[in-house]
Design a protein around this nucleic acid. Sequence first.
DNA 1: TACATTCACTCGTAATACAATCTTAGTGCA
DNA 2: TGCACTAAGATTGTATTACGAGTGAATGTA
Lengths: 227, 227
Amino acid sequence: MTKNDSMFRVDRVAAPLRVSVTESIRNAIAIGRFKPGDHLPERELCEMTGVSRTLVREAMRQLESEGLVTVEPHRGPFVTKISRQQAEGIYEVRQELESLACRLFVANASDEQRKTLKAALSSLRAACRKQDPQGRLAAKNHFYDCLVEGANNEALGNCIYMMNSRITLLRATSLKAPGRIKESIKELDILVDALLARDADKAAELARIHIGNAAAAAIPLIEEEAD
Amino acid sequence: MTKNDSMFRVDRVAAPLRVSVTESIRNAIAIGRFKPGDHLPERELCEMTGVSRTLVREAMRQLESEGLVTVEPHRGPFVTKISRQQAEGIYEVRQELESLACRLFVANASDEQRKTLKAALSSLRAACRKQDPQGRLAAKNHFYDCLVEGANNEALGNCIYMMNSRITLLRATSLKAPGRIKESIKELDILVDALLARDADKAAELARIHIGNAAAAAIPLIEEEAD
DNA sequence: TACATTCACTCGTAATACAATCTTAGTGCA
DNA sequence: TGCACTAAGATTGTATTACGAGTGAATGTA
């Protein structure tokens, strides 16, 4: 094998099984197969995923630190419930994080990344025309991935990823609230315009507004139980 | 037992062993017992902590999602190395996060929490006069805990916690760089003054400056290996 | 009804086993 | 000597089994 062949090398090993397991459970939560407050007994997860308790438990640890599940000692994992107040907090953080992401995107993104972002927005727009919640979620996540990658800040990406994950736990996110979708896309349209025009201040401000609107749409729909 | 006795109830159960294990390893990293790039074989961790592989592995999953360790398939966990670029990214995020925390503290903190913050700063000042890195770290963390608690935003607290953890991985943080300590405290002094005076804008700006200075002190000291 | 007891179930943790893979020490060859 | 290759040893990845401890629900009793 010549040295140049190394560029064809695939990842040394397929990802460990535990990664797939975690993804699988995470996805089950994201698409609503498990709802906030649901109990997730280990046995059930083992059966669902077909792996041993060992792996299920390791997956739980990860999802726990992502804030998707909450483990109560001797009672097991539950899908995290998000209170209205917590949701407000998350949106507040997202405002800061995403406006920073916009500023950094303007500063750091390559032309390639700009193009990709634009394409991702188109995909998102297309996905939102269909009645496929999972597809929408995927498209939205991909859009954020592009934004974050262009911003070129790993830590920021992590934080945004976490906040987005948690927002997924709300029954009503901006992409689910019916009337909100078209508005949301429109906002992203001008946001991306600002990004591509390299207008960092405007983009950051638009991101703030966008998140603010998303919050205003989603938060009133949160239903809390009396306890 | 009367109903009123319930206020004396301690947490239902002692924290699960795995929590202590995770803390122990996290602490070992924080105080430099394990350094970035170090390999952490499971056996060694088992011996160190005295628990089974099961628990060590669960702890690894958690530390992994906190970004403190990086697991390479079939090679095991390593203490994460932070590049200069990553460090810059983290400080950028901290600027946003902590200035938000200041604004929220002004808006939400109770008088009690204001008092506690002030006390925490005094403790920090005291700790910095001693030659006890672990004590300093603890005092600094406590100060942040107070700030975050007063800000009353869980998600924000999580993010700040994570960013602080990762910063710990740098050999040279603002609290380790010799000349920097006094300045740092001075900055926090006026920052806390602004917080207690309920001047949100000023506090947020001071936080930005403080983190910026910390970054300027720490980042040049990062040594990267050619690879 | 209120309280105590019991019981089945799940979690928390440990220990063991084995396959897959990495590392390293050799081994043989040019 | 230097290099490719092999084999042995160590470590990780995953599954399985086991058992004490805690929880919640059913049961029994006053």
